[in-house]
Amino acid sequence: MVEEAIANLYPEQEMRCPVHLSIGQEAAAVGVCDGLRSGDLAVSGHRSHAHYLAKGGSLKRLLAELYGRSTGCTGGLGGSMHLTDLSAGFLAATPIVGSSVPVAVGAAFSAKARGSDRLVTIFVGDGAMETGVVHESLNFAVVHNLPVLFCCENNLYSVYSPMEVRQPGHRTIADLAAGHGIRTSAGDGNDAEEVAVLADDAYRSIRAGEGPVFLELSTYRWREHCGPNYDNDIGYRSLDEFDLWRANDPIEVLAARGVWSQRASDTEEIASEIHLAVEFARESPFPDPETVRYPVLHRSVS
């Protein structure tokens, strides 16, 4: 509902930053974050709203950030592509594909080195699996037996480029990761319950000191890569494919099983929270270029 609200408001042109909406991919975020403790950390990439919210990130500060306000989670310096909420354990999201992965591994290294029981979850997409740095990071995490879960949401497209032009069809992403000697599993990324079971199983072994785990979750992006619209009309994917995934709506999956129902009162409560967050954002001041203090360098050590 948050992402739907953003999509509805985006054409007003008051949110003046790129947005990569998570609509269709919510179950992976919810299921994976469900088993994280408050002291655990999550890290993400460009499509991070769902991860931020599922880890408990402030909705008000997310909306304020999209609106470029000083009350935003990065005070207007980052926008949608640079989210953080340290109080919720959402360490960071940055949008260069694959680039935030070693940072998450470093946070896991630090947790282990400092004797904390913290674990770190890093969210990536199928495209990130084609970057060198992700493989360097997987290797490092395995060599150092780090407490980190690599969660790969495979939504079949990198912007508009389909899997078949990017990766060979005769192996899965989980197979690729397994080459690093990491424990892997895979499942339906649109089924939050299944995801939670897989993630909890991963967390149990990670917390037992058995090293990192790689989880591949199949899912689908409903809207355009970047922006608020549907884009099934521009010809990079078929309507049949879209309809197939839409029938596998993460919320409908739970509803059909009776796990969750969209009761009117629940929906109203969420809508009201979103409304308040949008109001908060819109009423918040913009950062003032005259008084803003850009954090670039600290004072020199003397």
Binding site: S99, P102, A104, G106, S110, A113
Partner: peptide, 8 residues
């Protein structure tokens, strides 16, 4: 990146 994650 690992060093950055440590430093942060």
């Amino acid at each position: 990146g690992v060093a950055l994650g440590c430093a942060a």
